[in-house]
Design a binder for these strands. Structure first.
Lengths: 286, 286
DNA sequence: AGATATCTCTGACTAAGGTCAGAGAATGGA
DNA sequence: TCCATTCTCTGACCTTAGTCAGAGATATCT
């Protein structure tokens, strides 16, 4: 059975048999959408804007759902002191009780589902689901162009600089902020997992772009994400009208150097005066 | 992470990211429910009763959905010649075209989903999903009491007899139909995967029941299904007021004998005149 | 300071997705 | 042959889930 056939087969099995886990929220006297919202707010509360994104709801619709929860005494909605356009939803004591009930229902259903399995089978299932979970997350990472001032992009760049500082023998000083270039950000669940940019070389090397600040979250390394980011950056450079890319790197970043080699990059002579650079590479995009 | 936690985590990941596979039916100008029904009818057609079970719909609602498909010229509903209360739905030429379109959309979505993965990752995902699929199916097998005349039960008994005939050196003759006893049938997707019965011994052995016709589909062996069936039959015998069970078997059924031993059965002397029996076992239910 | 964008809320509107009770035809079992 | 059951269909009714346009308050950019 090929990849998509297996995925589709599993999808059928899944929606028929585990799909009910979702509907465990039914039968609580509240419609599914309302229960889902209640559960999503959670014991710690959540911003209305954030809920809108997480559940993919229309803002007017969400307002009404929240008002229903408020009327039932489960949720309080208050102004966000940090930004008075925004509002924050938190559970009341009754709301927390209802939340726990939902959580418990869901837990019970999950237990009932694995109950007929032997201990060994359960372990195998857990293992298979962990693998599938990781790969599905990897497959659905979102890659998008961002301005380098985007808060999530800034966070990603910060983690990149911090790692350089940790790994370079003499540390690393990013100098003053440099926002030149076009940047790609990969996120999973809203958190940055990879980052990188392309910028035009300002000197006489026309048609040549430089790849800069390539970074992949430690937890995601070895999952092909770096190679994917590199491919996307090359495609971006091509769209921007370049037909060659260059990059520099430091000798301590061995896994990065290996990846550049695998991706078809060739070593070249120093083309800049970056004091941290120890190796320079290029690749033709034609 | 324990079993239920992993299951619930996966459930979240899955519904958020692959749930869209389901909604691939949207955007075809028809509401989701109608498209799902169209897809379920399939190129070979389907009985209305069967559709009702598979999709879990109210009969009135289903009638209306079918009428809509009929009005759109996608489906014809006709009387079932075998039972004129029932009706059969089949796709028209236009309906088959619409079905292929849905199938293709679903295929495309699946492809787009695995596209960002490397070949190795895809193989791992397919593997993990195959394992999860098998185990989820195993976990959701339905076990229920059936009269021995139930068509599915008859089919299961037939496969049991056929196997005995294949494996016994001198073949096997079931003799005239014997419907004494209470039977359990395990089904997956409506097809029999395990079968077995309990009957009171008619002679002087009061309080003793016999387990008979224990059978597990070849494809499902080694999945703990036999042991589960045995446990359920013992529980059934207990409910029927017995406190000891006995059974007979043939020496060629080695894996069955091993399973009885694992389940705590002890060999005893011949207690019947079954010409095929070569070994006899018992177990106390107290 | 002014323009622009973001966020929430309101009102008006709609389709989708059901549920329920009962009728009528056909079938199966005693 | 009669009775209970099964299956489909109809009519009446309802909630859920959602869309859209625009107003008003606040924040951000230049």
């Amino acid at each position: 059975m090929d990849d998509t056939a297996m995925l589709r087969r599993f999808n059928r099995t899944y929606t028929q048999r585990i799909g009910v886990l979702e509907e465990s929220f039914l039968g609580t006297g509240r419609p599914l959408g309302v229960s889902r919202l209640l559960f999503e707010i959670g014991p710690d509360g959540a911003g209305v804007r954030e809920l809108r994104d997480r559940l993919g709801l229309d803002s007017g619709y969400l307002t009404r759902l929240l008002r229903r929860l408020d009327r039932d005494g489960l949720v309080r909605v208050a102004e966000d002191p940090a930004d008075r356009r925004r509002r924050l939803a938190t559970l009341t004591a009754t709301g927390r009780r209802a939340w726990r009930e939902l959580d418990q229902r869901s837990e019970e259903l999950a237990e009932r589902l694995v109950a007929p399995l032997t201990a060994r089978q359960r372990a195998r299932l857990t293992d298979a689901l962990a693998t599938a979970d990781l790969l599905v997350r990897a497959a659905t990472i979102e890659l998008r162009e961002v301005p380098p001032t985007d808060p999530t992009a800034v966070a990603a760049a910060g983690r990149y600089f911090a790692e350089l500082d940790r790994r370079f023998p003499g540390g690393f000083d990013p100098g003053r902020p440099d926002h030149a270039g076009t940047f790609l950000l990969a996120t999973s669940d809203g958190r940055p997992v990879a980052y990188g940019g392309v910028r035009e070389l300002d000197d006489d090397l026309l048609g040549v772009a430089e790849i800069k600040r390539m970074w992949v979250d430690e937890a995601w390394r070895g999952a092909g994400l770096g190679a994917r980011m590199l491919r996307e950056l090359e495609a971006l450079a091509r769209r921007l009208g370049h037909d060659r890319v260059v990059l520099d790197t430091n000798g301590t970043l061995t896994e990065a150097i290996a990846m550049y080699a695998r991706a078809g990059y060739r070593p070249i002579a120093r083309y800049n005066d970056n004091p941290y650079a120890e190796a320079w590479f290029e690749k033709d995009l034609s």
